[in-house]
Design a binder for these strands. Structure first.
Lengths: 486, 486
DNA sequence: ACAGTTTCCCGTAAATGC
DNA sequence: TGCATTTACGGGAAACTG
């Protein structure tokens, strides 16, 4: 009846970070772990002392960083109304044990060591049960977590936590990332949408997911070789030489590696860990997850209201966007996330029917830098195309498919009637975003017509699909719930 | 020949902070001290060990925080070509010794303890000279420094360091701020100008200094009482009761305390420490020094080029500005620092001659927030007054007195020809600053005519002076040089 | 309630070592 | 040389304490 399963971790180690992302710990930063003893003998109160340890694998295992877990070493199990017998370790911190000479910089890169984000650690809480002649040493272990030393590693660490909890069959398997399994696309799609719904209250619809799926499910020649490399040693040398050779780079430059990529995902499609969070995407220097999470962060910080309203199409390819807008009336626009910016960007694209043809134009994407000064709806409201000696014109009239922009965004507009008494003596001023109408022929020609889509088509858009504003809105759930669904 | 004066601190303790502001140390942050032994017997190399201590006043003295000075405890004097025999302590840090229970928060506020910024500390370096039968214990002490725990205290700490080095007659007098002396206005003016010249390369001219002097040299009733309070105990109770009474606040509200303030400083004017950096200025909640330093920082960060050119009049009162602009041609403008913003602000004021009179208008001041997005010269270049269905107009034509704005600022204008290849596919965009021409009658009427100057006139401008763009450009000098000039 | 002070910690930049 | 990682610390905000 009283078994080792009676003692469990009830709050996984967690930084006090927004948006519920447990199981990532930063060195020298306080975190918290709680455990509960599920057998509730009132008599045990203050009788059971709990201590803790971290990792403690044998000395011969190399390639892991070792940490000291600092904090008040022992605490009593305490009884509370809502939790029963429980213990809470606050103000715990982790400090790396560094080998002799090591100052800052790289961890001891031994054979087989993996990157920080793929290193999993476990804390064990220990106590003794002693009652009615029965003596028992019992332990509770946390789920594996990732230890980072800088906030900049947080994003990649969260990818690991997601992947582990999505796919691991053994909750104590700290070697999970020595051979991380691939995931079915539908599972990954679920996670991606869930990330949006739990951060912003609105998930991703089928069209948005399809666009993402194309980025993740393609097979390029490089991945093909890599998968062979993992399975059979015979291609090892071949690939190695190929990689070193100029041929490899020449092929890469030509885009040959991406020919296979970009097919619409189906029921059987899978996503590799590498494609999800390890390797850079074609022609950019960041991973899918880094890009995706940057957008999630941008939406959360600056676009939450209009995202919730469903006014941000966001995940649309350029060519799909072009197809959508061309048939629409003058001044129809939509909002699309940049695919080439690491830190998250969003652009406005609109259709302009002129005597010499229809053009889809996009403004240079806005990032958190711009959006922290003007909300996107104010940019849209006041955007102007300037031309010499003409009244400036706002080209943005209807949000796709045909919603007058003030109907969509009017409720958020700032009223400058709120005259701050401190500054009454001054004229109110505000920032607006403008572009020159025809300042540079190069730009216009690139932004119009079709030539610029050639490369996109080659890599991303072998078919044209027709997005519909469907609803695919996940219930918000924390990681615990998400894990339990499995 | 070898005396205790042979061993001196050659680099005062200093954070690696920009703009040369030594003698401020932040707890838990590394700093550096070096000392030199001026007697150069080659034979002493590696023979003299240097150690250090901090403060070490007797236990009965209360009201000071106590610190531990951490770092490698002993170092040899080393010989180098350029410094001779010297020792350098790097990676020193300070940690407060906190009395038992103290977590964060206030220091032990004992009787007579002063604020952190007025607490001075000293580090002593100690060594033994032993040569040819002579034995001598010798010490070198740093100048008194201020210990802060957060960067936000830096500004106030620097005021202390300036005041001490301006006025102290004893370089080891850590009790200096128990009765800080007043300074002659001309000395203070010198410091203020020097602060600008050493940070930006251009000091303050006579008109700018006069405007500042009026803020510092006035005597209001409150200061009058305070000075009596310091000298004779007899007014203690009277003032205390007065301060508590509603009468005090009623008087304060009515501005009675400020009636005496704002006279033009002369040769005999003095500035008290309190007026300089302790008490808030009339009708705002920050001190003169906080205000002044915020502007200095703003200039350094965002206005350095146009400041160096002498295009920022800056320190002008509203009424002086009005007098200057009214007689000028339509569209004449000048740049003036806000007197009411704690964090530093700069406004543009221009004259507008209309059929119903001449108006001087000012735009809501720009702060580092705005200026880090658009440089001021770009705001000036593209500023627009919007009016329905009209071509927007830029009211800024001539920098006072009559320099066409493009002549003044043209060399800094950004050329948007630099088309970033990454974003060729997008339309370039930029921010511009706009105001509504007649959006709110209240604002316009307040910004025009004379009524709004009544309160200013009462407090700040009993006379009208006529600024001239003189040159008052200090040589840049670091604190060491400045101290030595005394 | 408040103000002075310290602690906490993100995010950027620099340092470090492979 | 570049990359992965850690350290350093400014600046905003929270926590703490009389």
């Amino acid at each position: 009846m009283v078994s080792s399963r009676s003692f469990v971790v009830s709050k996984q180690p967690s930084l006090p970070y927004p948006c519920k992302r447990p199981l990532i710990i930063k060195t020298s930063t306080q975190f918290l772990v709680t455990a509960r003893f599920l057998v509730n003998f009132q008599e045990l109160r203050h009788r059971m002392k709990v201590s803790f340890k971290i990792d403690k694998y044998p000395a011969e295992i190399k390639g892991y960083r070792r940490f000291n877990l600092l904090g008040s070493q022992e605490k009593d199990l305490e009884y509370t109304q809502c939790d029963g017998l429980a213990v809470e370790f606050k103000h715990l911190t982790l400090k790396e044990q560094r080998a002799g000479g090591g100052g800052k910089g790289s961890k001891g890169v031994n054979e087989g060591s993996r990157s920080v984000q793929e290193e999993l650690h476990i804390i064990t809480l220990m106590t003794q049960f002693s009652y009615d002649g029965v003596e028992l040493n019992i332990e509770a272990t946390t789920l594996p977590f990732v230890v980072i030393s800088n906030q900049s590693q947080f994003v990649r660490a969260w990818a690991s936590i997601l992947w582990f909890n999505l796919l691991s069959t053994d909750p104590k398997d700290v070697a999970f990332f020595s051979k991380p399994p691939a995931a079915k696309w539908i599972l990954v799609a679920d996670v991606l949408s869930w990330q949006f719904s739990c951060c912003t209250g609105r998930g991703l619809n089928a069209d948005q997911l399809q666009m993402l799926g194309k980025k993740l499910c393609g097979t390029d020649i490089l991945s093909f070789f890599n998968s062979i490399y993992n399975d059979a040693g015979i291609f090892h040398i071949v690939l190695f030489l190929l990689k070193l050779s100029k041929v490899y780079f020449a092929l890469k430059k030509l885009g040959v590696f991406f020919l296979f990529q970009g097919s619409v995902p189906n029921q059987d499609s899978t996503v590799t860990w590498s494609k999800f969070a390890k390797e850079s995407m074609p022609r950019v220097s960041f991973t899918f997850w880094e890009w995706f999470d940057a957008i999630l962060t941008l939406v959360k910080a600056h676009l939450e209201n209009i995202w919730k309203d469903g006014y941000v199409m966001g995940f649309v390819s350029r060519s799909a966007e072009d197809a959508l807008l061309r048939t629409r009336q003058q001044g129809t626009f939509l909002l699309r996330f940049s695919e080439s910016m690491r830190d998250g960007g969003i652009t406005i694209s609109w259709v302009d029917h002129e005597s010499d043809g229809s053009f889809v134009r996009s403004v240079e994407p806005f990032t958190k830098k711009e959006l922290s000064n003007i909300p996107l709806y104010e940019i849209i409201r006041n955007y102007q195309l300037l031309a010499e000696e003409n009244i400036p014109e706002n080209p943005l009239k209807f949000l796709y498919p045909n919603i007058p922009k003030d109907d969509a965004f009017g409720k958020y507009y700032e009223h400058n009637s709120e005259v701050n008494s401190e500054y009454q003596k001054y004229m109110k001023r505000r920032l607006i975003m403008v572009s020159e109408r025809n300042n540079d022929e190069t730009q216009s020609s690139i932004a119009s017509g079709t030539p610029q889509y050639i490369s996109d088509t080659l890599s991303n858009d072998n078919d044209i699909f027709s997005p519909v504003h469907g609803e695919y809105c996940h219930d918000a759930a924390d990681l615990g719930n998400f894990i339990n669904r499995k």
